[in-house]
Design a protein around this nucleic acid. Structure first.
Length: 674
DNA sequence: ACCCCCTGACTTTTT
DNA sequence: GTCAGGGGGT
């Protein structure tokens, strides 16, 4: 196999197939290309069967992209059986295969964050019922324990204060309830396989034999439990490649441990470290600025990005009197730049910010100027109420013990099962130690019990259990369509939507969802319960081919947080709100956690291919009050010779700036008014 | 059951 | 300043 288009280091990373390999891949250094081509190399040249190769990523998007690229390079036939999935999807498949060993039922449901929060709230921890903040902290603590591989008993023993003690108790209760509901949460999808692999030599051996080569993307984002999972999967002399960049670690607040990179060197003394330092994305000056900035952070592995692209224009720093002027400045500049560029597209421009709330004013200004835009990270498909409703029906069909699903839909659409009935049902279920749905069923059998609410409960219980029976027997998709029709969901949508158009839009969403269920059911798999498997997969939000549509070249200005921008690139980047207390964020300053904020700025800078513009405000109205803002310390850390810093070169008075801004805007407006 | 007003939050989020 | 979500009133 010839290896064109790869540089020396990339080739080295690709050819190293013995023992543990760490690839330190700087921003824009062609890391995805290396991983995908390495998989092809392993299959084609090293004759490792595709089914013995596993690659894990953090997002569905990354997994999908990788899979596509590999099968394009190696052909669909050669890649048959190759596993490219997210950590969570891998964990899910693991559990579905090993459910017997785990003493679980095959029809477990997956709880998302909201489900688990609802459960925690329900566990009767008095203080947390009213105090949302506390409830939230509790959920995060439980999640953190799970990510650290700490079980309830250990949490209890390690508790340092009264609060921790109480939290640990709730954790224990939570774990027991999850078992009763036959449910797992997202963290369990990693935790459960890790514990089984750790404790069961037979299972461990089986999986280590299956996986002859493991690849891990975005390694710096792994948490403790993911680290251990990988360790147990590859065994002591494992052959694997992990790819990561400690400078782009921006998720430590949710358990990611960039230290896992150093830990790897300690756990595997023969670890081969390969650095990819040539950047194919940015102009030289942008890279220089990024390097200088990140040099202020301590490093376990030193790395210096370089590029043979042109040096490029100085990075501009634009100081604005206030946030309105900032937005106007950015938007009018994007318009004029786009018009001036031949074949200029709005999608060449990105506006990046620290917090979601910062998008609002830019959105408003873009609308006012008729500029098409796209904000990433807005309400997702699965957050839509109609999708949550139907998902709850699907969950209840596969797992009748899923009380969260039951509660969501018991009275949706309205069928006269109000709070009073539900409370009675809850009490009954609690006494009998059964789920709410099972309680419905039992009450249904007690013919002598009378009451309007009870009749409704009976009817509901009959409806769902009949559907569940039929679904298990065969045509589950037909059964679901039938169920959706029987509950009158279509007319319910029309009742609850403001316009008929909105109702039809929501109805279409449901049709789309049901289409995925249909596609997701794999009758040929040896899974004992293909329908349940399909529903579980949907909880992990892998939307299969939906994104193909979404990702077609859109001519829209891209707006997103710095976190969401990781992995992407844009010709022209506007990094807005470059002020102290924004970037670095106020709470990070207070917690003395500047390094991760610096990495965030680094990620933002390295997104830019050609030009980079920082903007900041002198004054900003925060929470109704006008506040004076300080320029971000990161601006001071950048190489000043490479900056075109307006305010420093010729400081204008506030009035002059305001005048200038107004002039520019009216000039541009008259230019593009039509 | 529904609506309206008040209160509190204003870091980041995938699965 | 603005929005969401809870609580309380009708």
């Amino acid at each position: 196999m010839s290896l064109p288009q790869l540089n020396e280091k990339q080739r080295e990373a690709l050819l190293a197939t013995q023992g543990p390999i760490l690839v330190l891949a700087g921003a824009g250094s062609g890391k995805t290309s290396v991983i995908t081509r390495k998989m092809v190399y392993l299959i084609k040249e090293k004759d490792i069967p595709a089914r013995n190769i596993v690659a894990v990523t953090f997002t569905n998007k990354a997994a999908r992209e990788m899979k596509q690229r590999v099968s394009k390079l190696a052909g669909a036939k050669a890649t048959q059986g190759l596993t490219v999935s997210t950590f969570h999807n891998f964990g899910l498949n693991f559990i579905r295969r090993e459910y017997k060993k785990l003493r679980m039922k095959s029809n477990f449901t997956i709880f998302d964050d909201q489900d688990s929060l609802a459960l925690i709230k329900d566990l009767g921890f008095k203080e947390a019922e009213s105090d949302k903040q506390l409830l939230f902290r509790l959920q995060q603590q439980i999640s953190a324990w799970k990510n650290e591989l700490i079980l309830p008993e250990q949490a209890y023993n390690q508790a340092k204060d009264q609060e921790q003690l109480i939290f640990a108790k709730v954790y224990e209760k939570y774990a027991r309830s999850m078992k009763a509901y036959n449910a797992v949460d997202f963290d369990d999808l990693i935790l459960i396989p890790t514990l089984l692999l750790r404790d069961d030599p037979e299972v461990r051996e089986k999986w280590q034999n299956k996986i002859r080569y493991l690849l891990v993307d975005e390694y710096q984002d792994t948490n403790t439990s993911q680290y251990e999972l990988i360790k147990h999967l590859v065994g002591q002399f494992g052959h694997f490649t992990v790819v990561g960049d400690d400078d782009q670690s921006i998720y430590s607040w949710r358990g990611a441990r960039p230290e896992n990179l150093d830990q790897l060197a300690k756990d595997y003394p023969h670890l081969q470290v390969i650095k990819l330092e040539q950047n194919y994305r940015s102009y030289g000056r942008i890279l220089k600025a990024a390097n200088v900035l990140i040099d202020n952070n301590p490093h376990a592995f030193v790395k210096k990005l370089w590029s043979d692209k042109p040096y490029g224009d100085p990075l501009r720093v634009v100081t604005c009197p206030n946030e309105d002027a900032e937005a106007e400045k950015v938007v009018t500049e994007i318009i004029s730049r786009k018009v001036r560029t031949k074949n200029g597209r709005y999608s060449d421009f990105a506006i990046l910010y620290r917090g979601n709330h910062q998008s609002k004013i830019f959105e408003r200004t873009l609308i006012a100027n008729n500029v098409p835009y796209k904000i990433s990270g807005s309400t997702s498909f699965f957050a839509r109420s109609e999708i949550k409703d139907i998902m709850a029906y699907l969950r209840l069909l596969t797992n009748p013990d899923d009380d969260n699903a039951f509660l969501r839909i018991a009275n949706t659409p309205r069928r006269g099962i109000g709070p009073t009935t539900l409370e009675q049902l809850g009490t009954y279920a609690q006494i009998r130690h059964i789920s709410l749905f099972a309680a419905c069923h039992e009450i249904g059998l007690e013919q002598h019990l009378q009451g309007k609410g009870l009749d409704n409960v009976r009817r509901f219980s009959d409806l769902v259990s009949r559907a569940a029976d039929n679904a298990e027997r065969g045509d589950s998709v037909g059964v679901i369509h039938d169920l959706v029709a029987r509950i009158g969901y279509h007319s319910w949508l029309h009742e609850t939507s403001s316009t008929p158009k909105a109702a039809e839009f929501r109805w279409n969403n449901i049709q789309e969802l049901l289409g995925w269920v249909e596609k997701g059911i794999d009758d040929n798999s040896n899974d004992p319960n293909p329908f349940a498997a399909a529903v579980a997969n949907l909880m992990l939000r892998d939307m299969l081919d939906r994104n193909e549509k979404e990702e077609e070249e859109s001519n829209e200005v891209q707006l997103m947080t710095l976190h969401a921008a990781k992995g992407l690139e844009f010709n022209h980047v506007y990094l807005v709100g470059m002020e102290e207390e924004f970037l670095p964020h106020k709470s990070s300053i207070e917690n003395d956690d500047i390094e991760e904020e610096r990495r965030l700025a680094y990620v933002g800078i390295t997104r830019a291919q050609r030009t980079l513009t920082f903007t900041l405000c002198k004054k900003r109205s925060k929470y109704g009050e006008v506040m004076t803002c300080e320029p971000s310390r990161f601006l001071e850390e950048l190489p000043q010779d490479d900056l075109d810093w307006d305010a420093k070169r010729k400081p204008l008075t506030e009035e002059e700036q305001e005048q200038l801004a107004t002039d520019n805007i009216s000039m541009l407006k008259s230019l593009f008014a039509d």
